[in-house]
Amino acid sequence: MQNEWPLWEIFIRGQHGLSHRHVGSLHAPDAETAVRNARDVYTRRSEGVSIWVVEAAQITASDPDAKEAMFEPAEDKVYRHPTFYDIPDDAGHM
């Protein structure tokens, strides 16, 4: 629809979160309004300390139909996981 506001994807960093996470999407006429709307729609229960908005049309996504070629080849390459190393206790949580 021509008259509809563009869709924005909303990313929020929580109180103790290290990175912004995708929480949902909403409509807004411009980026600043999208931030304010995100504040009202997604942080009313103290969910966040920082908001990013990205116009959905600006996101390039992988093709769901190409899933097999994109992701399956990694499945049988277990040697890529660092599970074959003994981690010294001193190294702590990795």
């Binding site: 506001w5 909403l26 409509h27 807004a28 304010r36 709307n37 009202d40 729609v41 009313r44």
Partner: peptide, 10 residues
């Protein structure tokens, strides 16, 4: 719109 509805309620 939903966004304004929630904002006004807040």
């Amino acid at each position: 719109v939903l966004e304004e509805d929630i904002a006004l309620a807040n």
